[in-house]
């Protein structure tokens, strides 16, 4: 009877988006009379921060402050089409659609500004702080605010743009089954350290250390949030979550937060993360999807660490104390005395 420690690792390659009937998302961008920009989407922020990152992408493309961008995800009936927020596709697909829409809106904005300043629109640039000026001579400038006013009330123009990103459907080659289901993949590796109590079969995860290659972290603190939240969720899948922990039959299954177990604040391992940035050629400012993969690699890493600690290979989730204990007993029964 002892506590035994083990270490395990696992890696994951995770596709951004999916390949069913094609994978499109659309975005519409328009300026208000006072130069705020509204991005209309049917996509949904699940709490992962989609709205923040989409505002960053739009602002970066237009060259205006992020505070001047409002993301409207109000209505899937009336908004431009989006496949949805899933498959770690939001940042990449919707972000690309916004870049396309914002570029179109920006060109109208610069045309209006050019007329106001009596210069060529090709000579203009935005300063990221709410102004448009002639390249090389910042004193010849007009604010985005005044440009929007002029567009509405003088020039009769809408500063707006349309954007779509479409990942076309890929069909498998009949002979080989070869296809291109996704264009970009994020990568990660997790090392887990566990302690297994050989008397009770209980597993305690001591640390989860991960490295993530995410293209570019558009919002580094939010990427870190995803990674830690995901590692916790992976730990939860690995050791806790099931709808059927009870005996003897299904009607004893968990129906609420008290019975459906997940790790609490007292069950946390030490988390350590490294983010590696290798911008994706087709990503918005190089970004790939990081969301779901964060819950993936911790699971096999924990399973491998348990094997390393006590030699028990559990191949169904969650890895409950009972399964570990039965595994240890089976090993002991086989062992020569």
């Amino acid at each position: 009877m002892a506590k035994k420690r083990g270490r395990g690792m696992a890696a994951v390659n995770y596709p951004t988006g999916m390949n069913l009937g094609g994978d499109p998302s659309q975005a519409l961008v328009h300026a208000t009379t006072t130069g705020s920009f509204i991005v209309t989407l049917s996509s949904v922020d699940l709490g992962q921060g989609l709205k923040t990152v989409m505002a960053q992408i739009c602002a970066e493309t237009l060259g205006v402050p992020t505070e001047n961008v409002i993301i409207d995800t109000a209505d899937t009936d009336t908004g431009p089409h989006c496949m949805g927020t899933f498959a770690s596709r939001g940042t990449h697909r919707i972000g690309n659609a916004i870049i396309m829409a914002a570029k179109e809106a920006k060109s109208v904005m610069l045309e209006v500004a050019a007329e106001e300043l009596e210069v060529d629109s090709g000579d203009l640039q935005t300063d990221g702080a709410g102004n448009i000026h002639v390249k090389g001579s910042p004193q010849k400038s007009i604010s985005v605010f005044n440009t929007a006013l002029a567009a509405h009330f003088k020039h009769g123009k809408t500063i707006s743009g349309r954007g779509i990103f479409l990942q076309p459907r890929s069909y498998p080659e009949p002979e080989t089954g070869k296809m291109t289901p996704a264009t970009c993949y994020a990568h990660a590796c997790t090392v887990a350290e566990v302690e297994v109590d050989t008397e009770t079969g209980e597993v305690r995860v001591l640390s989860l250390k991960s490295a993530y290659e995410v293209g570019r972290a558009l919002n580094p603190r939010m990427v870190e949030q995803q990674i830690i939240g995901g590692a916790w969720m992976g730990l939860s899948h690995a050791l806790y979550e099931t709808t059927e922990p009870y005996y003897p039959d299904r009607s004893h299954g968990p129906v609420d937060f008290n019975q459906y177990l997940m790790p609490g604040p007292g069950d946390l391992p030490e988390f350590e993360n490294v983010v590696i940035e290798r911008p994706a050629a087709d990503g918005p400012y190089g970004a790939k999807g990081v969301g779901e993969m964060t819950a993936n690699s911790p699971i096999p890493a924990i399973a491998n660490a348990i094997f390393d600690a006590v030699g028990v290979r559990v191949d169904s989730l969650p890895i409950t104390p009972e399964k570990v204990l039965r595994g240890i007993q089976a090993l002991n029964a086989r062992a020569p005395y």
């Binding site: 992962q48 830690i228 590692a231 916790w232 997940m262 609490g264 604040p265 007292g266 946390l268």
Partner: peptide, 20 residues
Amino acid sequence: DVIDAISGNICRCTGYEPII
């Protein structure tokens, strides 16, 4: 102490670590 104080509160997103 912090863990104890928030142990009656469930979070499904953050993994608790940033909250602590």
